[in-house]
Design a binder for these strands. Structure first.
Lengths: 341, 341
DNA sequence: GGCAGGGATGTAATCGATTCCACGAGTCCA
DNA sequence: TGGACTCGTGGAATCGATTACATCCCTGCC
């Protein structure tokens, strides 16, 4: 592969001049510029990003560590992150932690070794020393969706509290009184916050949230299935199951169907995170939709602000309730209610 | 960030010795090794992968360019690719082409500039000069899922022909005679092959595939919707719509529902690519399942073989039909038929 | 005792870029 | 006419690693 030296030789100039041409430095004669461009074209020369990064100490690359690529919510997030990053001149390397802290550490370490310019993380746990050290050491970092309390890192996320309140109001209006939740890991902020928001909303309606109605999931479908089976085995099963993410909702649906029961007649279902498929499940699932695209874009902007020396801002955007049929009585019949993720 | 020089100084040895320790070179005294390790730990030193890559001309990184991250099929593929690569000591950088050739080129160029060790591609089109040149120039490359004919690059893919034949048999047995297909872009192998397989299978049953029953899609949901609307507007609409990928099937479902029609009573639906959600759609969708995980792993193995000087093999694995209820009469009732993707 | 061989180590070249500095030539103005 | 300045250019240092080569010292064998 041709290097800058080959270009210089072929154009009859020094490597310094070639570099100046390539970087748009003003002080280059038109003649030299032309000869260099010709040589570049003739040789099919492309600058070696590795060498450039070594010298400039910039990789123009962002790392994105997400909890689960198979989760459509995170895929959508990753996509919007990549789009915005590309628009700002950055590439993105995605690390999939699969909800496993040690994998998360593996990716963070790998990304740091590659000297990415900044890190976007949706932490799987309370934060390993590795990540905390990196943050403290000054690695530009932004948390997205989930975050770690007590660390001085901007957070870009959705606030689901209002939407959860709307959901509970909706459920209450439909006559449901025994509401259960499949929670995410308590070590994640989204895991604990959603339970708290749910509990607070229930309290407004004078409804309890007994421990038996709080199932411990891990954001994966299988745990949704398991927890739901537990709920169904209760002497007094809940009227509604609220899954704290879309995959656990999928598992819940599995469990309900495996028993030969029907949603919403036998038990209602709602989920946090709206995804396109929820329109087409049987029945369509009532969900809380996050502004995923805007979240990803805002996170990238905050991170790039930080990298380029500006002051990044934390951002909180509202989530909103999308009512479908999985909790009972359909909303006023209308054209297919499409997803908005 | 500490460099190898700092470690050398702190350990009282030369950088060469530090490098030897770090790379497990045998000719280092126990004493020196120990002092180096201590210094490494004390400084929290991590080798700079950028510098290392520049010197060794290896990045231990694979590029994966896929057509659409939002498509669960490709996400699953990406996941298995990353897993296998990690097991073999490589990282993966994913580029999402979004079915747009120019974006695909952008990512290929970007990955090449970063001097990735090898490229895994599921081409969005017939192949840009950029990609063909790279292949000819000797960049280790493997095609996965889709490929470009006439290029000397190993291909790892699933052969859906037998499964398509099974599907047609199934449809025929259910009494369907007017079968239509939503095809992918003809420029992609999967786009054209699936139509050909379908046509060939229909021929075995003496069924025609009129042009009006071949809708041109682009593997995205919206095109599935549009094509399906066209089918429904036909004086003689088809009995069955076979979507060449899961997203177009989703669009088809949308279109059918928007008309107030029902699957499979009014029109049946089948899809290429099985995904977990198909179990839970209304109705569950009959689909052709690819061995996605094995495909990803085999592709990585082939690519790494090529990179490390062994001879890579092309691999073709069989896809298989998963019957659910979207084409009519359920299969013998049984426990929930789970997805297998 | 001397020499060959091998182990441990350091020096320095190298990878491919960027960029500081110096230098020559040309321009402008006093 | 000469000095100051600008512009275009090249030489060389530099980024942080790896590694060929040279050196030194120790051991073992004849």
């Amino acid at each position: 592969m041709a290097s800058i030296k080959d270009v210089a030789a072929s154009a009859g100039v020094s490597v310094a001049t070639v570099s100046r041409v390539l970087n748009g430095h003003p002080s280059v004669s038109a003649d030299a510029r032309e000869r260099v461009m010709a040589a570049v074209a003739a040789l099919g020369y492309r600058p070696n990003a590795v060498a450039r990064s070594l010298r400039t100490d910039q990789t123009h690359t962002l790392g994105l560590v997400i909890s689960d690529v198979l989760n459509p919510y995170f895929t959508a997030l990753a996509r919007s992150v990549e789009e915005e990053a590309r628009a700002l001149g950055y590439s993105v390397i995605i690390g999939n932690a699969d909800e496993r802290p040690e994998l998360q550490d593996h990716h963070v370490r790998n990304l740091l070794d590659r000297r990415i310019d900044g890190l976007l993380v949706s932490p799987t746990d309370g934060g390993s020393p590795l990540m905390l050290d990196a943050a403290r050491a000054g690695t530009p970092m932004v948390f997205v969706d989930r975050w770690i309390p007590g660390v001085d890192v901007p957070v870009v996320r959705a606030d689901g509290r209002a939407a959860v309140r709307d959901l509970v109001a909706h459920l209450y209006a439909l006559g449901h009184r025994r509401l259960a939740i499949i929670a995410g890991p308590a070590a994640t902020t989204t895991g604990s916050e959603r339970v708290e928001a749910f509990r607070a909303a229930l309290a407004e309606y004078g409804l309890p949230l007994p421990d038996a109605y709080i199932g411990q999931g891990d954001f994966q479908a299988e745990s949704g299935r398991r927890v739901t089976e537990g709920f169904l085995d209760l002497p007094e099963p809940p009227d509604v199951v609220f899954a704290a993410d879309n995959l656990m909702a999928l598992g819940a649906l599995d469990a309900v169907r495996a028993r030969g029961l029907r949603v919403p007649d036998d038990i209602a279902l709602a989920a946090f995170d709206d995804i396109p498929w929820f329109v087409h499940t049987d029945p369509p699932v009532t969900a809380i939709a996050q502004p995923t695209g805007e979240l990803g874009r805002a996170a990238v902007r905050a991170l790039v602000d930080r990298i380029e020396g500006r002051t990044p801002r934390s951002v909180t955007l509202p989530a909103r309730l999308v009512v479908r049929r999985s909790c009972g009585e359909p909303p006023t019949p209308s054209p297919v209610q499409r997803s908005t993720t």
